[in-house]
Simulated assay, not measured.
Amino acid sequence: MAVSTSCLSWVPATASNWKLKLLPFNEPSTATSSFSSSSTINCSIERISRDEGIYNRRPLLLGVGALATSLLGASPLFAEEIPKNYRAFVDSTDGYSYYYPSDWREFDFRAHDSAFKDRYLQLQNVRVKFIPTEKKDIHEEGPLDEVVNFLVKHRYAAPNQKTTIYDMKERTIDGKIYYTFEYKLSSRAFSRTSFATIAIANGRYYTLVVGANDRRWRRYRDMLKVVADSFRVLDI
């Protein structure tokens, strides 16, 4: 069974209109919250308001026993598949998921659908956005090297920034195609290195970017790579 199927098969059909942040079973919650937590599962669910065109975030406390039964019944290995010190973010309404470091906190990043950042280093963060497209998969954008070079030089970089692309790769998981690449944007005053993963599904062009200040990149690169490689698009 491919990774994306085994990690995400727990999402119940009745949760199709919700966003879920699921914490590992063996790790207590460190996120601040106005509702009580459980030593077994702690999750927050956010309702999306389609009519208003924005997200109305309403943390709710579910019956933990019922939720645990649903998760374990659907995928007994789900908790083991979340890497240690990470949490899973699953948006079953907008059709994507990824892991993020367990000590990061959610924040609003302009024009993005979801975002998490380091508690103390705000420039060390992950964010996801999507735009409509009529294309069916990322191959329709072009070959890997052409797409990556165009994005980094003409979409991600400001006019005064120098671009460096270190690595790029293509993966196919459960029939979905992903381009993941590592790149650096630098200017006189500041440099930042990032991973990006892009994919097309559900009539949407998805982009995940996770990065850090260039001075901290060597130390945190492997941790951030887990985030970039974990990105999955779901059928909605």
Rank of each mutant, 00 (worst) to 15 (best):
D51H: 10
L71I: 15
L22Q: 05
K21F: 08
L20Y: 13
R216M: 11
Y98E: 05
M223V: 11
R119H: 04
E146G: 06
L224K: 00
W18N: 13
T197F: 08
T197C: 07
S92E: 08
I41S: 09
L72R: 08
T93V: 13
A2M: 12
M223D: 12
E80Y: 09
A228Y: 00
P12K: 03
S36L: 13
R192Q: 14
P28Q: 03
P59C: 07
N160M: 08
F107G: 02
K117Q: 11
L23I: 12
T93P: 00
N85C: 05
A2N: 14
L151M: 13
V226T: 15
H139D: 09
L22H: 02
W18R: 13
T93W: 07
P101L: 08
T207Y: 04
N85M: 04
D145K: 07
G142A: 11
E134W: 02
Y220A: 06
R110S: 10
T14L: 12
T133R: 03
F181P: 00
K135F: 09
A158I: 06
P24G: 05
P159I: 01
K21M: 09
R47D: 05
F150H: 11
D51T: 14
A13L: 10
T163M: 06
R119S: 15
S92H: 11
N17G: 15
V90Q: 04
G53R: 06
F109T: 07
R204E: 07
I48Q: 09
A68R: 12
L8F: 05
I131M: 13
R105L: 13
S38Y: 06
E81N: 11
E80I: 03
E80C: 01
D94T: 12
F130S: 07
K184F: 05
C7R: 09
D91S: 01
N85Y: 15
S75Y: 03
S114H: 12
E80M: 06
S75T: 07
F190V: 02
M1K: 11
K19D: 15
T133V: 03
I138P: 09
K162A: 04
A196Y: 01
R192M: 15
Y86L: 06
K129L: 05
R155N: 10
G175R: 08
R47C: 07
V226Y: 02
Q124I: 10
Y178I: 00
L144C: 10
K169N: 12
D174M: 03
D91A: 00
A74N: 13
G95R: 02
F35R: 02
G95Q: 06
F78H: 14
S39V: 05
I198A: 08
S37V: 12
F130E: 00
N42K: 11
L60I: 11
E170Y: 05
Y96M: 03
Y166E: 10
D103L: 14
S9I: 11
D214I: 07
N42P: 13
P76G: 02
T193L: 01
I236M: 08
P24L: 10
